[in-house]
Design a protein around this nucleic acid. Structure first.
Lengths: 200, 200
DNA sequence: GGACAACCTGACCGGCCGGTCAACTTCGCT
DNA sequence: AGCGAAGTTGACCGGCCGGTCAGGTTGTCC
């Protein structure tokens, strides 16, 4: 978590939040090449302030990614006591995709493999997904040969698919989520040709 | 096509081919940030030569992308007289994914939307996919509510999915292709919640 | 209200990258 | 063989980007 080594000053907390929001917006608009200077400008602070809060661009990205992982993790856990495990899994996937449809930051994920706080948040989220999938599988809503990691790697697929059409409808990702979910169901499933990947 | 305005000199043809190969390799390894200087070095030529053959980095990328589109297009057309339309579609998707698994250049695609020769090759390939899907649908191998464009946008999904696991088996994409293909089949299909996108 | 630490600022730096160009080399043709 | 055109070279340029830091500012606590 964010180590409360010393409580931040009031303006520092404000600036940090503004920076994270600005960075998120800038990264979604300009991609990985969004510059620290632009992020600072958008947050209404000087360039130096960015580097006071985040020692490097990588660290800023890591903070964003870890934040998203943690938020999704919380959402997943809230679904733990759902009465319909199959529906819960789909609802989780929809939440994940819905967030990406608004701010697709999946391309930042690979850049932060080294960061330990990201790794922790990621592993936690993966465990949450694994649990959702296990319940859905036990309930017969998901085919038996599909693992949590399989679902994990497919999370971004619906939104990425929409990236290949011009001016996609804002909820087009639901169409591809539906297709993939149908592929995860037991009905009409053909045997899978390759063993599942191990985690990590 | 490549306009034969004047026949290229022998060394020029060699260099052009070397440059395309080097660029492809460099882009797969370093991503979009691969530098023109590195590409030149890898091809064994000077930097200026790159810009003689391709006026800008964008143009080089466009040449690569268009080349891949055309190669896939040819493959798709060779499948036109297959006796099993469902199998033909899957075979095409496997060829596309197999190529990407070796050299994933899908991230270059969005950068070349403006280029007219890329647009032509892309539209041609899309038409080919549409035809493969139509036949598979008529044969009952693909659900009725799925369009060619749906399949088009899902082409990259199997390979992209493998990008989220460490050291994926080289043919892991086959697993996710199988899942998606199962989602495209009529068996157990649930109605899709959103209308398909129009092309383009 | 004063004093100190935390924080912010913005000019500055080195490095890299896409792109240019005048001088030189090589191909291809007769 | 020799000549002109096509091709190649590599030093060079302007611009941008991540990152630094000395000095000014502001929150906070007594």
């Amino acid at each position: 978590m964010t180590s409360p080594h010393r409580p931040l000053r009031a303006d520092a907390t404000r600036n940090r939040a503004a920076l994270l929001a600005a960075a998120e917006a800038e990264f979604t608009e300009r991609g990985l090449d969004a510059s620290m200077a632009d992020i600072a400008r958008r947050a209404g602070v000087a360039k130096g302030t960015v580097f006071r809060h985040f020692a490097s661009k990588e660290e800023l990205i890591a903070a964003i990614v870890a934040g998203h992982f943690r938020a999704l993790s919380e959402y997943a856990r809230a679904l733990d006591d759902a009465s319909d495990p199959g529906g819960a899994l789909v609802e989780f996937l929809a939440e994940a995709a819905g967030g990406q449809a608004h701010h697709d930051l999946s391309f930042l994920q690979t850049l932060t493999e080294g960061d330990s706080s990201v790794a922790a948040a990621r592993d936690q989220l993966h465990a949450d997904v694994e649990r959702l999938v296990a319940r859905a599988r036990d309930a017969g809503a998901v085919r038996g040969d599909v693992t949590g990691t399989d679902v994990w790697v497919l999370i971004c697929a619906p939104v990425h698919a929409t990236g290949y059409v011009r001016d996609p409808a804002p909820d087009l990702w639901r169409r591809y989520l539906a297709i993939i979910v149908d592929g995860l169901r037991p009905a009409g499933a053909q045997p899978l040709p390759v063993p599942p990947p191990t985690w990590p």
